[in-house]
Nucleic acid binder design. Structure first.
Lengths: 385, 385
DNA sequence: ATCACTAACAATGGATACCATCATTAGTAG
DNA sequence: CTACTAATGATGGTATCCATTGTTAGTGAT
């Protein structure tokens, strides 16, 4: 029970937020519809919406023709009122994006980096990617309302990268301070799998699913979960790392794919794709390898599913490109292990899942500020008018 | 973002609830203290508290002596304003309790039943236990504000027992309807492990811990988790059943204890206790058996811990009586399997953990009603005055 | 016993936000 | 052109919260 007391202004803010939330759908709403959805009286709705319009959060759209009676004004959320930056700082690549408040991408940039790139240069690569996005979108740093980054490793509640194996000197990096230096805006950092999970729930194949498990399947497997609509963090930020359990053989799942004799000589980063492709063409050895891979994947997935009982499991990460060959074996292997079989879907966001997820985190952060802070944006919004 | 709009009366209710929540602590509060905690002005606090007092939710206690200035009135939550019924319907026993609104037991009753007792008679046993509690407490059915039961098996969101193995005809039993017939009060049903987990968080060894995993260790192991203060249900109510995973050998963990030659002939329900006792006395064979048991237990626990990253793991259930011998082996076995070692504590609530948890569920339900319903108690409370 | 000091109490008036109601307005349909 | 419809705009009323100011019931010193 976390009800905080409040005064009249807080009530007004709650009602404003309720209106804003209702207007965030795709279709513009009339005042009457809005009033019905929020439960507010018509008169109050008018007052709230007028204020929101004055502040630049919503805008009026032309009334619809041909209706009975006096045409109603319609309003919609101004998703381009502000923008956020999302980042994906990975082992081999750095991605940046700028999205509007709906999470729609306005600009994005990508740089390949090597795994052993030192910390400082990796950060510079990220900065350059962000700068490129800004100039593409024609925006300045002041137009950014929030910044969020998804990165490999265990990220604790404060946003510090607490543990990471795949980048040598990445542990302990303080991304919050780094980006706070360039942006006068709140900065958040999260584990990349978690960001991706959020993206799937907001923009991907699990929209409006409240309980889901996201599998990040690629060369470095990971997982994250959303429970009752909330991203699972864990006390130390290490939720979702079930793959590390020895009984769950996730760390060396890749060996199944690498052991197909036909592709034994292929470069490490291509083997998986080749095996999946061969399996797709009907190669029996490759199919068997995929089957073994799926069997291992299913064990960890089952641990997650039995623990959380999600409605949907989303298969994401690099290998989700091969969802057509991986999905069915995974389903077959998972079914006998679980109590209630969840739906298993393949991600559709592809490589952008983490940056988009980061953007979602940034947007969520703005929404939280809206709820708690008196002046969440330093009156930045009013200035734009 | 689930902010619903609201009118002034809702604001008042929110503020009332904030005061009520603050007053629920152990110490009575003065109006000034209350005003500080809730963030309300002093004047409003007075109004709210006066109303709460009129309605019977809080009461004044004598002012404290010897302070400087005019002595302040002090108020406290009237935990005996109402009562709830908690039930534990298990395989071999049925427990009932009546608690006040703080979860303090006022009366309790217990009946042993046999595992193959038919459904109807098990329900009658529960009814008799409740009746006994009522007469002990000197209360009538109208004095009960909510009823909750914890029971074995998978319980879905609607409270139906969806799946259960240990009681032959228990699946599909509709406990909600059954108790709603006797009580004019809301009825909720939950899985027993989940109830116990809640009890530990509210009344037991994990008070105010927001992220915890509860292990119900006994002849039928189970688990439940509380994440960010919320009990994990899962989409189908089957969260926490990680023990069913074959890679996690929980279903036949007991074999380790039963395989100690010295106790091979002992009755099934006593073996474990004897082995733990022997281990406590220094018997090396028994200690080794406990060690093997703990090793198996740790695998499933690790799956939970890696998935959820809790702050605390609580060891409950029948075997928690032997926490002194089981705890250390469990810690040793768990540490190498997890990323961040949680605190491991042994339950102190003993056999009452499920009934108390059920009572907590009932109390929580009342609180929810308070937040949403206009007249949550059918003005039952006002009537008592 | 009296007086100063302290911290809580009590009453007043003002501000904000919500709501119900009703006349008005801008469209469509015949 | 008129009847009908559904949204608009304005009014007055009510609930709730807050700041302010004077009052009260205690303690401690003279």
């Amino acid at each position: 029970m976390d009800v905080g007391g409040g005064d009249l202004q807080r009530l007004r803010r709650l009602n404003s937020l309720a209106c804003l939330g209702a207007l965030r759908g795709d279709v513009p709403l009339t005042l009457a519809e809005l009033s019905r959805r929020t439960g507010l009286s018509r008169a109050s709705t008018v007052e709230v919406v007028t204020e929101l319009e004055e502040r630049g959060w919503v805008e009026e759209v032309p009334p619809v023709q041909g209706a009975m009676g006096r045409p109603a004004r319609r309003y919609r959320f101004r998703s381009n009122a502000g923008h956020v930056v999302g980042l994906d700082i990975g082992v081999h690549k750095v991605l940046a994006t700028i999205t509007d408040l709906d999470g729609a991408m306005v600009a994005s940039a990508r740089t390949a980096v090597s795994a052993d790139l030192p910390r400082g240069e990796r950060l510079e690569a990220a900065d350059r990617a962000v700068a490129a996005c800004l100039s593409m979108a024609g925006l300045g740093q002041d137009d950014i309302w929030a910044v969020a980054a998804g990165t490999v490793g265990v990220v604790d509640r404060s946003g510090r990268v607490a543990r990471v194996h795949s980048i040598p000197d990445w542990a302990g990096v303080d991304l919050v301070s780094h980006f706070a230096a360039s942006f006068d805006a709140p900065v958040r950092v999260a584990n990349d799998s978690r960001a991706a999970a959020l993206a799937e729930q907001r923009l991907g194949v699990a929209q409006d699913v409240a309980d889901l498990v996201y599998l990040h399947v690629g060369r470095r497997p990971g997982a994250a979960s959303i429970i009752e609509g909330r991203l699972l963090q864990g006390f130390g930020g290490a939720a979702g790392e079930v793959g590390l359990l020895p009984a769950v053989r996730w760390m060396d799942m890749g060996r199944h794919l690498e052991s197909v004799p036909r592709f034994a000589g292929a470069p490490e980063e291509q083997v998986a794709g080749l095996v999946f492709a061969a399996a797709r063409e009907g190669d029996r050895e490759a199919a068997a390898a995929v089957e073994r891979f799926a069997a291992d994947l299913a064990v960890g997935t089952a641990a997650l599913v039995l623990t959380l009982d999600p409605e949907v499991v989303v298969l994401g990460g690099g290998f989700s490109r091969s969802g057509d060959v991986l999905l069915e074996p995974l389903r077959r292997a998972l079914a006998p292990l679980v109590l209630r079989m969840p739906e298993v879907r393949s991600s559709a966001l592809g490589e952008n899942c983490v940056v988009l997820g980061a953007a979602c985190i940034a947007i969520d952060h703005i929404n939280e500020l809206l709820l708690t802070e008196a002046d969440p944006l330093g009156s930045r919004l009013d200035r734009t008018r």
